[in-house]
Amino acid sequence: MTAYTATVTVRLKHGVLDPEAETTKQALERLGFELDSLRSADRFEIDLEADSSEAARERADEMAERLLANPTIHDYDVEVDER
């Protein structure tokens, strides 16, 4: 077994309104920053042990499918690194 960190990033699907990001963007503009747009995302760093990076990825994928992301509104990606 090898120790891995699987990083799952969950973000809203393209086209789904993100009112919190819009509010954050406006707050940055109030502080005098110039920016075109801002997107937010949730990142989960999951330490786990698995036989291979493929197995670690598969497990993290399933975590995203079943809980971390809501497929109605989210896309997600998974990165796996040895730790």
Binding site: P19, E20, E22
Partner: peptide
């Protein structure tokens, strides 16, 4: 899904 109000 029910998610964040447009008004935030």
């Amino acid at each position: 899904a029910f998610t964040t109000n447009e008004s935030a």
